[in-house]
């Protein structure tokens, strides 16, 4: 089954206020789920990054501009709630959202199972960027441990959770026909 993610919500007319309200609610709900419930899906100490998944999916379905804005807000909120002193997520999340938006067009004619792989790949990229920042700002970093225990494991979890979310969305809102994305 070829999937055109941009077609999913094509019939829905967004007014500005509705869009702001929807995204604000979405970010608040996902942020709450992240801090309260995501550790239940954790393997060891590593949990899926639901905020990252949200930004990626917004990028894939709604385009770069919206993904960057959502990424900025989500990253900011994540940094406020996290123990990091650097604003890493504020920088990384919009970047990943932008890349997801750029990838939306090439995957239009690809099968649906490519989406979870793409999400895992974007999560891996995000993890490697954060690791790079860690290496720049700290000493005595065990790179192998971090890559194995945090970066790879998180991207795997993100891919799995992303698969569930993507197939749920495709089930609830089945794509109707193919359409070249023209944001």
């Amino acid at each position: 089954m070829g999937v055109d993610p941009t077609r999913l919500f094509a019939g829905f007319r967004w007014s500005g206020a509705v869009m702001v309200l929807t995204y604000a609610s979405l970010i608040c709900v996902v942020a709450s789920l992240q801090v309260v419930g995501s550790h239940r899906l954790a393997i060891g100490n590593t949990a899926p990054d639901l905020m990252l998944l949200m930004v990626c999916l917004v990028g894939l379905w709604r385009g770069q501009a919206e993904a960057v804005v959502v990424g900025l807000l989500a990253g900011f909120l994540q940094d406020v709630l996290s123990g990091g002193t650097l604003w890493v997520n504020l920088a990384v999340k919009p970047l990943i959202g932008m890349i997801a938006g750029m990838l939306a067009r090439p995957i239009i004619s690809m099968p649906a199972w490519i989406l979870p792989l793409l999400l895992a790949g974007l999560s891996l990229l995000s993890g490697l960027i954060v690791l790079l920042l860690f290496l720049v700002t700290r000493e005595d970093v065990d790179v192998v441990q971090i890559v194995l225990r945090t970066v790879v494991l998180q991207s795997t979890l993100d891919g799995l959770v992303g698969a569930v979310v993507v197939f749920f969305i495709l089930y609830v809102f089945p794509p109707q026909g193919r359409r070249i994305w023209n944001p």
Partner: peptide
């Protein structure tokens, strides 16, 4: 305790 670390890079509680 109302929440836990939102990223995997730090070990925190809210």
């Amino acid at each position: 305790v109302i929440g836990r670390n939102p990223t995997n890079w730090h070990r925190t509680l809210i």
